[in-house]
Design a binder for these strands. Sequence first.
DNA 1: CTGTGGTATTTTAGGCTTGAAACATGCCGG
DNA 2: CCGGCATGTTTCAAGCCTAAAATACCACAG
Lengths: 165, 165
Amino acid sequence: MSGADDIELDAETRLASDHRGELRLWLRLLTCATLIEGEVRGRLRERFDVTLPRFDLMAQLEKSPDGLTLGDLSRRMMVSNGNITGLVERLVDSGHIVRMPHATDRRVSYVRLTEAGRTEFAKMAAQHGDWIAQMFSGLNAEEQRTLLRLLGQLKQSVRARSEPA
Amino acid sequence: MSGADDIELDAETRLASDHRGELRLWLRLLTCATLIEGEVRGRLRERFDVTLPRFDLMAQLEKSPDGLTLGDLSRRMMVSNGNITGLVERLVDSGHIVRMPHATDRRVSYVRLTEAGRTEFAKMAAQHGDWIAQMFSGLNAEEQRTLLRLLGQLKQSVRARSEPA
DNA sequence: CTGTGGTATTTTAGGCTTGAAACATGCCGG
DNA sequence: CCGGCATGTTTCAAGCCTAAAATACCACAG
């Protein structure tokens, strides 16, 4: 690909390869994500002395009371396998989660919240929801719906053009 | 703003503290950012053997031909000071950028692209623009405008509710 | 001058993250 | 049974990132 006969400047000012609009949009999206993430990270650390990746992992487990394998976690959190190994190790050390062997397949290890982990997570999640809601409160219900829809489209668009697996 | 009379009609299903909609929106925003970032990171590594943070730093310098201080970089890239120190060190080692002392203030150090750095960056930036444009191509011009506007609102909303400095 | 408070950068300790290679098992055709 | 390929997890080296403390310097009041 990239053939691009961008030699000719089409119409008047805009070259065939002028992607400023999309770059601007991407930059703004990234700024929003970075701002929100930074805010959440700081508050979790201050008020609960927990890191964002740990919180995210616990959130995944909360949604799956029967436990998840490390591979499940890796896919759902969209991070590498090796990353999960370390995260799980630290959360086991702190008593928030436990490992359980798979009944028959000795390769896989399930992981789930402990009682203490679930209790702790519930407190954090409640606050977390409030923080997020507050940060999005500058958009009314319809604007939120529109944003959700457009981001859904974007997600599909990105997926379609990245890993056509 | 924020008024949100969510009292009405939450009689049965929706509690006052139900922030599922906002959480869903945040999750989707984060997914989009993660997907795009991962895609860009992978391609930069494969085709140019460069990391995303290095690319980002060079992009900032490209926009400021007269150079930037480490503090400028830290603020614009929204990362910590210490992070910039290490990033700059590696980019100096690889010959992409150079440090220049401030004329009178010996605390500050300016940094700018070398000729080689600028040339290398130009190649990367052209590709980068194409990748981004392609990933956003599932949205038409109007949808992109709307998304840009809503993200702008979100950005303001987050800023207003985080650091009222 | 000289202390005092502020700004720019670096250092430090710890944790997160990746991609690739190594391990450990499971599965299956022959 | 057994070799070979696939799958799940860990290890490894390198780099990214943060918050906080330390360092270096400037400016300015006295």
